[in-house]
Amino acid sequence: MAKDKTEDPTLAKKEKKDKKDKKRKHSDIDPTSAIVGDEAVETPAKKEKKEKKDKKRKSLPAADVDADGDIAVVDVKDEDDEKKEDSTAPLAALVPFANPLCGEKEQKKVLKGVKKAAKSKALKRGVKECVKCIRKSPPSNPTTNTATSLPSGIVVLAADISPMDVISHIPVLCEDHGIPYVYVPSRAELGAAGSTKRPTSVVMIMPKVGKGVEEDKEWEEAFGELNKLAVKMGGEVRV
């Protein structure tokens, strides 16, 4: 009788299972690591990658790294966007009746005149002081003012005042007394030009220098130029 050469089915199943286990263990091993004994050791490639990641994390500010040590995503604003926001933000705070409002060129001339007036002690600051001076001024027509017949003063108001009722009555007083007035966008810049540390809502430039200061022909010419600019801007109504 010939010998039966068929294999034991249980033995074949066992060999098949061992092959699958070996294959699974091989796939679980990280290709960048090597096994020494029972522990996995980092290969040079993995170690170099980890060092690069640590250096990048150390170079970032603390705010850009979260609690787990991972790099956090930070929303970075463009410089052009910040400039746009800065340029448009003050416009929303301007009073609606700011007319005539100085442009960039006119603002430089007006603030330069305010600085000269402060040096010559020919400047009134604040609502109370300016209103008092306006009421004492004789009524006149600003359109008829000339180099020889100048107004009692020139009023410069800040357009970013809140609440607006603080200065809303001043333009009416100026028109009643024939005093030209203009608006500048920033009260902080107006205060700085008037040699004060605080923002100023309104200043009044006087035609004559204050006490203790010698008469200056240059200041009279500068006041005449400011008067022409204020009268010209007052004749242009901007809607």
Rank of each mutant, 00 (worst) to 15 (best):
A63K: 14
A63S: 15
D64K: 14
D64N: 14
V65W: 12
D66Q: 11
A67M: 10
D68P: 02
D68F: 10
D68E: 14
G69H: 09
G69Q: 10
D70F: 11
D70Y: 12
D70V: 06
D70I: 05
D70Q: 13
I71W: 10
V74K: 15
D75E: 15
D75G: 15
V76K: 15
K77E: 14
K77L: 14
K77G: 11
D78C: 10
D78Q: 13
K83N: 15
E85Q: 14
E85W: 09
E85T: 13
S87F: 14
T88P: 08
T88Q: 15
A89Q: 12
A89R: 15
P90H: 10
P90M: 06
P90R: 09
L91G: 12
A92E: 13
P96N: 12
A98C: 11
A98H: 02
N99R: 13
N99V: 13
P100S: 06
L101Q: 05
L101C: 06
L101F: 02
C102P: 07
G103Y: 03
G103H: 00
E104P: 09
E104K: 14
E106T: 00
E106Q: 12
K108L: 10
K108F: 02
K109Y: 09
K109N: 10
V110W: 02
V110Q: 01
K112M: 09
K112H: 11
K112P: 05
G113H: 07
G113E: 04
G113A: 11
G113Q: 07
G113S: 12
V114S: 01
K115S: 08
K115R: 13
K116C: 00
K116E: 03
K116Q: 08
K116A: 08
A118R: 01
A118D: 04
K119P: 01
S120R: 07
S120D: 07
S120Y: 08
S120M: 13
K121A: 04
K121C: 04
K121E: 03
A122L: 00
A122R: 03
L123Q: 02
L123W: 02
K124P: 01
G126H: 07
G126D: 07
K128M: 08
K128W: 01
K128F: 08
E129I: 00
E129P: 04
C130Q: 05
V131K: 05
V131Y: 01
V131F: 04
V131L: 03
K132V: 00
I134L: 07
R135N: 09
R135Y: 05
K136H: 04
K136P: 00
P138W: 02
P138S: 09
P138A: 10
P138H: 07
N141Q: 10
N141Y: 07
P142I: 05
P142S: 08
T143V: 08
N145P: 00
N145T: 06
A147Q: 07
A147K: 11
T148H: 08
T148C: 08
T148I: 09
S149I: 09
S149K: 14
L150Q: 11
L150F: 02
L150W: 02
P151S: 06
S152M: 01
G153R: 01
G153L: 01
I154L: 12
V155Y: 03
V155E: 01
V155K: 00
